[in-house]
Computed example of a mutant assay.
Amino acid sequence: MDIAEASRHRIVGGVDTHKDLHVAAVVDERDRVLGTGCFATTRQGYRQMLAWMRSFGDVQRIGIESTGSYGAGLLRYMQKAGIEVMEVTTPDKHDRRRRGKNDDLDAQNAAHAAFSGRRTVTPRSRDGMVESLRVLAVCRKTAVAARRVALQIIQTTIVCAPDGLRDTLRSMTRMQLVRTLAAWRPDLSEYRDVDGAYRISLKSLARRYLELHDEIADLDAMIGVIVKELAPELIARNSIGNTGAAQLLLTAGDNPERLRSEASFAALCGVSPVPASSGKTVRHRLNRGGDRAANSALHIIAIGRLRTDPATKAYVARRITEGHSKLDALRALKRYIAREVFHIITRRHRQINQAQIAA
């Protein structure tokens, strides 16, 4: 195709992402497939993919699968190149059953979805402080899980330990137990002896627990600094701590403007009311979709306010007297908190953008 002729065409791309190779497809302004290609998941591969797509015409937008994992690098590259990127969600099951599945077809389906605007959402950008927060939060989550496992193994090991060891450790508190075990100096040459093996094992587990404990404390400090810089007004509100604020910031992303309204944020957090009426009964139920980690953060905030905030107590009591269940009242409270959080995050995001433009 001649370059001048290609420049007159408006095309849409689609990408099926993988760990080492991405498969791309291009459709024209009539949604007809023009071609497919395979490219490496490197900066050079991304450059070749974009050049290949532009050889067919003017790239309007690109639909990419899994922008939060395999497609994260491609997303950042295309955004820096000024290309509109849409995240393609679940594939069309009817089309997959009819046509089958392979990487070329998946890339073509992504291009068709981006062309029609169906099964697409605006992806979260991954080049700001929220992305830094996400990486630290993932590291903290795995460290907390590993620390919990270490403590569980310590407790089960003590249950099976010889009586002489078990009796001295049974009445200690958690941290007293861990610090006592970490301070032991067992003879490493006695690992063949049952008592010696238990002492070596318990000391190793206790030191692992303390190392993870210190690692979590360091991560908490770093997360707290980012949260305070991103949303100081958020953590100043009642019952919103660094952990809950961090999760809500992660759910909103570096580009909360992609959320059309506070209702869309509530739906994303799984606290939007879902109609559950039948006959003469008119009611709403809990939304069991959305980001469950964000839903959990809002639930913890709601419980904290229910215990400490007189206005929240009065609100829940009023809802109950009106005939609603406590669960319904709590659902409505979480919806209110989601509205409050959304406006704080978007207002702060606008302030940050204005400061960057002014600089």
Score class of each variant (00 low, 15 high):
Y191W: 06
S116P: 15
E211H: 07
D58F: 00
D309P: 07
K334Y: 06
A137T: 15
D328E: 15
V144S: 08
R258C: 12
W52D: 00
I235P: 13
V227E: 03
A332P: 03
A266H: 03
Y315I: 06
D106G: 01
K203D: 01
G14I: 00
V85F: 00
N102D: 06
H213P: 00
G290Q: 03
N102I: 05
R61T: 00
D104Q: 08
M129F: 08
S189H: 05
A24S: 11
Q48I: 00
L306Q: 12
V15G: 00
R96I: 12
M53S: 03
P162A: 05
G304C: 13
R124T: 12
T346N: 08
A293V: 06
L249D: 04
H112Y: 10
T251A: 07
V23G: 06
A206P: 02
Q108T: 12
V138D: 09
H299G: 04
I154N: 01
D92F: 13
V316F: 12
A338H: 09
V130W: 14
R347W: 08
R134I: 08
Y336C: 06
Y77D: 11
G13I: 08
R288K: 15
R319L: 15
F39D: 00
Q108W: 08
A266C: 13
W184Q: 10
M222W: 08
C38G: 09
R307F: 14
P91A: 02
I200L: 13
K326S: 11
R350E: 13
K326M: 11
R174V: 14
A252W: 11
L234N: 10
G196N: 08
G164D: 14
R76V: 09
A252T: 11
R32M: 05
R331P: 08
Q152M: 09
G13D: 07
Q176T: 10
K326G: 13
D92Y: 09
V178Q: 00
E262Y: 14
G100P: 01
L327M: 09
A359K: 14
M175V: 04
I301E: 05
A317Y: 07
A329Y: 11
I226Y: 01
C269P: 04
I200F: 11
G100M: 01
P186T: 14
L177R: 15
R166F: 03
Y70V: 01
R166S: 14
V15S: 03
P256S: 08
A24I: 07
E215N: 09
Y198E: 06
A114F: 02
M53A: 05
T42D: 02
A182R: 05
